[in-house]
Structures are given as structure tokens and as C-alpha cells.
């Protein structure tokens, strides 16, 4: 299951496999939780700033608020496709887009996209400085401090300049 989610996020699943998986995620709570966790980890790997837990949930909620667009459909198309599957696919596309954007382009190139990203996880100075306090309180007890001394504090030294 987890491997499949990971493969889906990397675009390595075939179309019918992804459909089945998305359907499963839509129905099963556990599946949704895994889905969210994998996205969270993916986001953190791609973007080192503070990340909200429920990013994909937020995207889903935003999508639900979006007005419905009635587009002409191909005649004879399969009308049995449920709206749920479509919205799941749309939210997948949206999350994929955000992750892809943060990977591929600098914020200068697409200012409006950058703004959108800020909406999704606003820079929160207080959180950052708070995290710094935890880091500091933790560092003195870490075996790494014993091995490379003050060099391990460089994590916080960097941090100060960004957070404050």
C-alpha cells in the first residue's frame, strides 16, 4: 500500500492502478492517513521550511469550495465516473503541481504561484523561533555535540538569521 502511494506520487503507476488506489484512499481512513503522511514527507523533502500537517486536506477543502465548471463532454463518454474520483484526481494534480513548482522554479519566475504557496504555509516567525528553542534544549543532550562540539550548534546559528 505505502509503496503504491509512493509510486503514485512519483508518477510511476499505470492509469488503472492509480484509479484503483485513489478509490481506495478515498474510501478507507487508514489509506487517507498514509496518503497525507507521504505527502507531508514529500513536502518536507522538497521544501525545508515549516510545513503544515494537513496540506493535502487543505487543498481538498479548497477544491470543494471551487465553483463547479461545466465543460462540454465528449459524447459517449463514460458518465459512470464518479465525481469523487474526479475530485480526488484533481486534488492529486494540485498537490503534485505545488510540489513540482517548488522543485522546478524559483519564486521570482512565477510571483503569483509563490503567493499561493505562502497561503498554503504562511511563514510563521514565532513558530520558527519556538522550534529553535526546542532545538537548543535538545542539542546539549545529543551525542553529536560530544563528537563535533560546537559545530553541531551551526544548525541553530543558521536558523537565527532566518527566523528573526
Amino acid at each position: 500500500m505505502n509503496m503504491e502511494i509512493s509510486a503514485l506520487m512519483d508518477g510511476e503507476l499505470l492509469e488503472d492502478e492509480s484509479e484503483k488506489l485513489l478509490d481506495h484512499i478515498g474510501r478507507v481512513d487508514e489509506g487517507r492517513k498514509d496518503w497525507e503522511m507521504y505527502h507531508l514527507i514529500g513536502d518536507v523533502l522538497h521544501q525545508p521550511d515549516h510545513i503544515h500537517c494537513d496540506l493535502s486536506a487543505k487543498v481538498r477543502v479548497r477544491l470543494q469550495d471551487e465553483p463547479v465548471v461545466f465543460a462540454p463532454r465528449k459524447r459517449g463518454g463514460n458518465h459512470k465516473f464518479s465525481a469523487v474520483a474526479l475530485s480526488a484526481a484533481a486534488s492529486l494534480a494540485a498537490v503534485g503541481m505545488v510540489v513540482w513548482m517548488s522543485q522546478q522554479i524559483g519564486s521570482e519566475a512565477f510571483p503569483q504561484m509563490a503567493m499561493q504557496q505562502n497561503l498554503l504555509h504562511p511563514a510563521n516567525v514565532k513558530i520558527q523561533s519556538k522550534s529553535n528553542d526546542y532545538l537548543m534544549a535538545h542539542q546539549e543532550f545529543s551525542p553529536s555535540t560530544d563528537m563535533n562540539g560546537g559545530a553541531s550548534y551551526i544548525r541553530m546559528v543558521n536558523y537565527e538569521s532566518e527566523g528573526r
Binding site: L40, I41, V44, P48, H50, I51, H52, C53, D54, N124, K126, I127, K130, S131, Y134, L135, A137, H138, F141, S142, P143, S144, R155, N158, Y159
Partner: peptide, 29 residues
């Protein structure tokens, strides 16, 4: 090699205490 600290404090209802995962090099919070 690795230490893990768990900090526990009363929830003071601070709106800024957003849940989340934060990563800095090898340290995850």
C-alpha cells in the same frame, strides 16, 4: 548516535502552535 527529545507542556491555546513537521538537516521536529 541520535538523541530524541520529547517536550510536553500544557496547551495554552496559542493559535500559533500549528501542528506540523519541521526539518533542519538531520534534525526533524
Amino acid at each position: 548516535f541520535s538523541a530524541v527529545s520529547i517536550f510536553i507542556e500544557p496547551d495554552d491555546g496559542d493559535e500559533d502552535d500549528v501542528e506540523g513537521l519541521y526539518s533542519r538537516g538531520a534534525v526533524n521536529i
